[in-house]
Computed example of a mutant assay.
Amino acid sequence: MAFDEVRFPANLSFGSVGGPERRTEIVTLANGYEERNTPWAHARRRYDAGVGLRSLDDVEALLAFFEARRGQLNGFRWKDWADYRSCRASQEVGFEDQVIGIGDGETRVFQLLKTYRSGGQGYARPIAKPVAGTVRAGVQGKQLVETLDFTVDTTTGNVTFANPPDVGTQVTAGYEFDVPVRFDSDRIEVSVASFQAGDLPHVPVIEVRL
């Protein structure tokens, strides 16, 4: 799958609407009870890029980005302003934000994860597109130094440690991240007159599996 490591202009995604989508299969039995199951291990996010547009210059920037991606052909990065950091919105990124693994004395490569918890339940979301220069990592409460103690592949979300963390040690990380997406249509319709009157184009964007 073609993917361009370029971010959709963040000033245009600000103000857009969207979020995670789940797929649940529900069967209602004869006695009224339900059986529920999901074929998806991970949620898939959808957004509307058109809602963030504010001027005709924004429209031109959108059209240029759309054409450069060849419509739906090439994926790209998207900043989800409602969920783009490993920590709470009111906090700063720290190296102990998320537990990404437990050392076994041999493994050196760990996938970045973000865990969502509520009501005693949790969901670990793989993070494949961290933002370069924002990743912090540590082992058992000790912060490490990027390039010296670890490296980050910003195209996969893999963190590689120079030395494998010891057995039983907690491996942690903090970061900002983007969502891998593509346009969900090969067509964009914009009317200059209607846009000036406040009618925004509909530009669907959907998360892609990597």
Rank of each mutant, 00 (worst) to 15 (best):
D4H: 14
E5P: 04
V6L: 09
V6T: 15
V6M: 09
R7N: 12
F8M: 06
F8L: 01
A10H: 05
L12T: 01
S13D: 07
F14G: 06
T24H: 03
T24N: 06
E25S: 12
T28L: 07
N31P: 00
N31M: 08
G32H: 07
Y33T: 15
Y33S: 15
H42R: 11
H42M: 12
A43S: 15
R45G: 04
Y47K: 05
D48W: 03
G50M: 00
G50F: 00
G50E: 00
V51F: 05
L53E: 02
L53H: 02
L53V: 03
S55K: 02
D58E: 04
L63T: 10
F66H: 04
F66Y: 10
E67A: 15
A68V: 12
R69M: 07
R70H: 12
R70W: 06
R70Q: 14
R70C: 08
G71P: 01
N74C: 15
G75R: 03
F76K: 05
R77M: 11
W78E: 02
R85F: 02
S86Y: 01
C87N: 11
A89G: 10
V93Q: 00
F95I: 06
V99T: 14
I102C: 03
I102G: 03
G105M: 06
G105Q: 12
G105I: 10
G105K: 11
R108I: 09
V109M: 05
V109K: 09
V109H: 04
F110I: 05
L112G: 00
L113C: 05
K114Y: 02
T115N: 03
T115G: 01
G119D: 08
G119Y: 04
A124S: 15
R125I: 12
A128N: 12
A128I: 13
K129P: 00
A132T: 14
G133I: 03
G133N: 08
V135W: 03
V135D: 01
A137C: 14
A137P: 00
G138Q: 04
G141C: 05
G141T: 09
G141D: 08
D149F: 07
D153C: 06
T154M: 04
T156S: 13
N158V: 07
V159E: 02
T160A: 10
A162Q: 13
V167P: 00
V171P: 01
V181L: 08
D184K: 09
D184M: 03
S185Q: 04
R187C: 10
R187I: 13
S191V: 07
A193F: 11
Q196F: 10
G198D: 03
V203K: 06
